[in-house]
Simulated scan of single mutants.
Amino acid sequence: MPLVRIDMNRGRSREEIKAVTDAVHQSLVEVFKIPERDRFQLVTQHDADEIIAQDAGLGFERTPGAVMIQIFTQHGRSTEDKQHLPSAARRPCASGRRRPRPRPTRSSL
């Protein structure tokens, strides 16, 4: 039963929020082999000045569309599975749009 916390700037449509939550959940089903109905997600929208995500010298610009995703799981998930999770969530949606790109942090792995 992974618990997913998703933080994003306010102003996204319901469809955009659903695309983010569905992408994250589908990657959990695929990689961690959880049941489809094992879904626990908290989505929080913030004012623009409440998410601070500065450039860390990684060579890309952050946009106001940044999404922060934290996944809390029980013990027993392999490091390999945890590292594969972000790439599974980035696969293109059926509509041709790219899925949001979750960026794992060491504390969330």
Rank of each mutant, 00 (worst) to 15 (best):
S95D: 15
Q70V: 01
S27V: 00
R103K: 13
D49R: 08
A56Y: 11
F40V: 11
R98S: 15
V43D: 07
Q70R: 06
Q70T: 08
G11P: 07
R77Q: 00
R101I: 12
A23T: 06
I34R: 11
E80S: 12
S95V: 02
S95A: 04
P35A: 05
L28H: 10
S108P: 00
D47I: 05
V4F: 10
T63P: 05
E50L: 09
T44I: 10
T105E: 15
P64V: 08
T73I: 06
R106L: 14
R12T: 06
K82H: 03
G57N: 03
T73S: 13
Q26L: 05
G76I: 07
Q70M: 12
D55Y: 00
R5G: 11
Q26K: 04
N9S: 07
E50S: 09
C93S: 11
S13K: 00
A53Y: 13
R39Y: 14
H25D: 07
Q45W: 02
E36F: 03
V67G: 04
D7Q: 12
Q26S: 02
P35N: 00
D55C: 11
D38P: 05
H75N: 13
S13C: 01
D22K: 03
L85R: 01
R14F: 09
F40P: 01
T21R: 06
R97L: 14
R97F: 13
I69W: 10
